Simulated scan of single mutants.
Amino acid sequence: MKFFTAGGMSILLFISILFSTTDALSQNGQVTVNSTSGTPYSVTVKITPTQILRSSTTCLNGYNYNVRFNYQITYSGTPQGNLYTHQVEIICLNNQVNGFYSLPKAAANSSGTAQTSTNPFVPNNGTPGQYSSPYVHCSAANIYTFNCLTARLIIHGPGINSQTIPFNLGNPLPVELIEFNAEAEKNQVNLNWSTASERNSDYFTIERTRDGENFEEIGSIKASGNSSTLKSYQFTDYSPEPGISYYRLTQTDFDGQSESFEIKSVEVKSSQVITNVFPNPTADSKANVLVQKTNQLVELRLFNVFGQLILDKQIDASNGQVIETIELPQNAGTYMVELTQQGEVVGR
């Protein structure tokens, strides 16, 4: 306050200063909002951009895009009810706003993947197919080149004032995964994945489990290190388990940090647990028959070209794949190996 003198009278003038208070804390790609009235509780929202979704792959005259991201919402305390408003805006190159206006409002922990819907436009520099900083050609569009490092959370709910909270997103994921697929084909499972960009990416690990919990590593593939172009990878599981198995893809950085992606389930039917015969053709009177692991006894039968039975024996592969060496007749010719389980042919 200040004193002023006017006409011999002292006038006391109060100067009112409004202080803004915050009921939110942001750090490391997440923001925590605390209730200010009623039963105490808080909501923590974590946003991680993962991919730039381009509207074009040629983009001669510019292109639109949206941002795919992962979200994680965590409640603590006793929520007073569902949120009224729960939205996020991700800020990318040249301060373009990418809005998503349907974050879950239910007062429960949740996580998932979503994408923005506001379609900002990236213009060329006046020449078809050419772009000037800060804009980039669509072939180089990724989380790093688009500088998606900040966001705004828009939230309102019981005991939580309506507010817009800016926060830093932190470092984006080292790998921008486009797809990961697993598919059974006869006696093997083919796994394929592709990335739009990679940063300090050392290698990928492929794991498998039957129970969905206890994973075992079955292989690894060297990653591309640093890349802003499409990279494709492939791995084949030549000894799949019969029935339903779950495959997990994990990426590891040069510094040892790792992240795992969505788990894929694959069913290998009993008719797909078939045999491989090698060498084929063979120069001597022996051949090896590879029988995949199966919980039921396998009957192996050998026929000549006239359909005559030459050999009939049972194989127990319940503890893992078995390589069975069979004696062939001395006569040169063509022979057929047949595997059956409970009368059903499962391999030829």
Rank of each mutant, 00 (worst) to 15 (best):
5 T>W: 12
16 S>R: 15
17 I>R: 06
26 S>F: 06
27 Q>W: 10
29 G>A: 07
31 V>A: 00
43 V>Y: 02
51 Q>I: 07
56 S>V: 07
77 G>D: 09
87 Q>V: 03
87 Q>M: 13
113 T>Q: 12
115 Q>N: 12
117 S>P: 01
119 N>F: 14
120 P>K: 07
123 P>N: 12
123 P>R: 11
130 Q>C: 03
131 Y>R: 13
138 C>L: 04
142 N>C: 05
147 N>M: 06
153 L>P: 03
157 G>M: 02
160 I>C: 04
163 Q>T: 14
165 I>F: 07
170 G>W: 00
170 G>D: 04
182 A>C: 10
185 E>H: 13
191 L>C: 08
191 L>T: 00
193 W>K: 02
196 A>W: 00
205 T>I: 07
206 I>E: 00
215 F>K: 01
215 F>I: 04
224 S>H: 07
231 K>P: 00
241 E>T: 11
241 E>Y: 13
249 L>E: 03
254 F>T: 10
258 S>I: 06
258 S>Q: 11
259 E>D: 15
264 K>A: 09
265 S>Q: 14
268 V>I: 13
273 V>W: 00
289 V>Y: 01
293 K>N: 06
296 Q>A: 12
297 L>W: 07
301 R>D: 06
303 F>V: 10
308 Q>Y: 08
309 L>E: 12
314 Q>W: 14
322 V>Q: 08
326 I>S: 03
326 I>P: 01
330 Q>N: 15
333 G>V: 08
337 V>A: 04
339 L>M: 03
347 G>N: 04
